[in-house]
Design a protein around this nucleic acid. Structure first.
Lengths: 185, 185
DNA sequence: TTCGGAATCGAACTTCATGTACGGAATCTA
DNA sequence: TAGATTCCGTACATGAAGTTCGATTCCGAA
């Protein structure tokens, strides 16, 4: 009972093709100009096959985002958060390594959804760190939720700007800008 | 020659109706769910009349944004920028006064276009201030453009968060969060 | 008040993308 | 190999975008 049946190869192939098609298309034109027709043409699958797996275009994008979010969260957790609330060096380095992909998703040609998702991820992490440090009472006068929105928004804006401008400075410089622009905690 | 003829009343009425319709609709549902049909129904104008004045829905939104941008820029310029690069108290106060309108445009139901436009406005202003202060050499080690992206993005994120969460703190507190979260210049 | 030009109306039409339906063919797993 | 699942492809319904055009109404200037 409850036999763990392996996933059908055909399903895997279909999903892989669609992920690849989306990523290759989003480099070429902005996300909201991409149609389902574009996707199934590029992926070479039938129309009804697409709708058998995803409800909408955004649905496909969200499944892509799961990977991205997991990556980011890992980089946020790996690094010990030093002075800055959010440790940014790992994020910038990771973004540099996968800059084509991440710029396409996060940048001006990407989707609102990606920005919101990333902001939520950053904010969640920032709140956790702030709550953790609550004991030292160093910032008891400032509301924690607003501070979290601030540091998360600042990091996302900095990252987006950096990618959109084709990374004019190395990740180390960017992490410095981030850390040194923040008031010491 | 070049007689300055006054604008036709009908044109004014049409545009006013459309602006009103857009603002009243965007409070009810998210911007990208609004159709041209919704707009002309609410405004009580003919379909072809709409296209006689605006090319697209975004075109109409942009003309709305001109007002918003002008307002913001005035508030950024009025207040002397103290320690923080961008003076934020005036912005938060102005946003509080027109919160229904601005939340609808800037918040999660608004459009990407508004966020981008606002970010551009903030960034432009921040760059001007940073360039102005360049002489004192206090931050010569950090690239000015990246710093501008940081402070602009942080302010916009804070403002958006504040409006989306129905302004849980007074404008003065928000301005404090902004100013005190930044490293002293 | 009148007149000519401009704006509006409204309805029909084209185009395009979304989403659904279904029968037959291909392919997978067991 | 056999039964089940998935895929294909075509056709169809829906709905929004954007265009066209003749008739009508309204405006501003004289």
């Amino acid at each position: 009972m409850a036999t763990k049946s392996r996933p059908d190869r055909r399903v895997q192939r279909t999903k892989d093709s669609l992920h690849f098609a989306l990523m290759s298309l989003i480099v070429e034109k902005s996300y909201d100009k991409i149609t389902v027709q574009d996707l199934i043409d590029r992926a070479n699958i039938g129309r009804s096959t697409f709708y058998a797996h995803y409800e909408t275009k955004d649905d496909l994008l969200l499944s892509e985002l799961d990977r991205l979010t997991a990556d980011i969260e890992r980089h946020l957790a790996d690094e010990p958060s030093s002075t800055a609330i959010l440790p940014s060096l790992g994020v910038f380095r990771h973004a540099a390594e996968n800059h084509r992909e991440i710029k396409a998703l996060l940048g001006s040609k990407g989707s609102d959804l990606v920005q919101r998702t990333a902001l939520a991820t950053f904010t969640r992490r920032a709140e956790a760190v702030i709550d953790e440090r609550e004991g030292d009472g160093k910032n008891g006068n400032l509301p924690a939720d607003a501070r979290a929105a601030f540091v998360a928004g600042a990091l996302l804006a900095l990252l987006t700007w950096w990618l959109d401008n084709d990374r004019p400075y190395p990740p180390e410089t960017m992490a410095n800008v981030y850390a040194q622009s923040l008031a010491p905690t």
